[in-house]
Simulated scan of single mutants.
Amino acid sequence: MALRQEVSAWRPAVRGVAEVFHAHFTDYAYPMHVHEAWTLLIVDDGAVRYDLDRHEHGTPHDTVSLLPPHVPHNGSPATSQGFRKRVLYLDSDVLGEDLVGAAVDAPDLRDPVLRRRVGQLHSALALPGDELEADSRLTLIGERLRDHLSSPARSPLRARQRPDPVLARRLRELLDERVVQGLALEEAAALVQAHPAHLVRAFSSAYGIAPHQYLTARRVDLARRLLLDGRPPGDVAAAAGFYDQAHLTRHFRKLVGVTPGRYGDRRKASVR
């Protein structure tokens, strides 16, 4: 089999994520090394074998692996087909150093909900403009990881919290005031004096939609009005709060079913 090495890495504009790293290796072994950040790893194809604190571990595709900072580990393909992985390097303020020991004892977590959320976070980080979504997903991931590592039974289950419609309404009002400017989750939490994770859950419970989905829908509505006023999509993207025209097009097509250009052109809107 021909050797294969594909790597992409970037630093997103999301607080708490030091680096995003995607790689596909067929015959490459990492030597023992350490990271300053927490390493949150999922494997999409194949499997990785690694040693952590002198114990051997593996990462099949249905697990999430969390490797603590400053603890030596290595890594190599567990099969001849190699592996394809996605990694997030998280700053220490996402997970405290008090959880290092628990992560060393149990770095591989079998949790389908956590696995899905980590994949969704990678998707949100892939393109600029979806920072509120990434912030929200990272907050819930951090909370679930802490549940895994801090509870006596190492269970991800959290006691159900009571609905908080007042808190949800306060966040909705903030989002309505800043449709174009946007609002970071950390700033919103400080303004309403609530924990970010509780704020996201309260909003989602009250309105059946996550805060980032609500903000995107409001921006698409604004874009529709501007397009019907005859403004070109390139101008509408910035005026409606989108990162660029590609960002507008991606969400507009998802919510409306057509691109902004076709929506604003009556001659093309009915073409199949």
Rank of each mutant, 00 (worst) to 15 (best):
R11S: 08
V17W: 07
G75Y: 09
T59E: 13
M1I: 09
H198I: 05
Y28F: 14
Y89V: 04
A197L: 01
L114A: 09
H57Q: 14
L227V: 01
V7G: 14
R116E: 15
S204D: 12
I141K: 12
L175G: 06
H212N: 08
A2P: 09
D44I: 00
A134F: 06
R218M: 05
H251E: 03
D62V: 01
D135M: 04
Y214S: 07
I42D: 07
H122C: 02
M32T: 13
V64T: 14
G96N: 10
L3N: 12
A217F: 12
L185Q: 08
G261A: 09
D135Y: 00
L255F: 15
E143S: 06
A188N: 07
S80P: 03
R110K: 12
P156E: 04
L227N: 01
L191D: 01
P12H: 00
A190G: 04
E173I: 01
R224L: 02
A29W: 10
A188G: 10
L226G: 02
H148R: 15
A202D: 08
H33I: 00
R49N: 11
L132D: 07
R225A: 04
P128A: 07
E173H: 13
R15C: 13
Q245T: 04
L132Y: 01
T139K: 00
H247D: 07
A37I: 10
H33E: 09
L99G: 04
I209N: 11
A184E: 14
T216G: 05
V48Q: 06
A126E: 15
H61V: 15
L114F: 10
R11I: 15
R158Q: 07
V271L: 12
R117M: 02
G234I: 06
A126N: 10
A23P: 05
P68A: 02
R116K: 09
D44N: 13
V7W: 12
D98W: 03
L167Q: 01
A168P: 03
A246P: 09
W38Q: 08
V113I: 10
P165H: 12
F203P: 05
P196M: 05
P156S: 09
G58F: 11
V258T: 15
D105S: 02
Q193T: 14
L183M: 15
E173D: 12
G58I: 15
D45A: 01
V192R: 11
A184R: 05
R262S: 02
A189K: 07
D221H: 11
D98Q: 11
D135K: 05
Q81S: 15
Y263C: 03
F242Q: 01
A23S: 12
H70G: 10
R115I: 00
F83P: 00
A47R: 14
R15G: 08
D111S: 02
D244H: 15
R231K: 12
H251W: 15
P165S: 05
E133G: 01
L67M: 11
L171V: 06
V192Q: 11
R146I: 06
L174S: 09
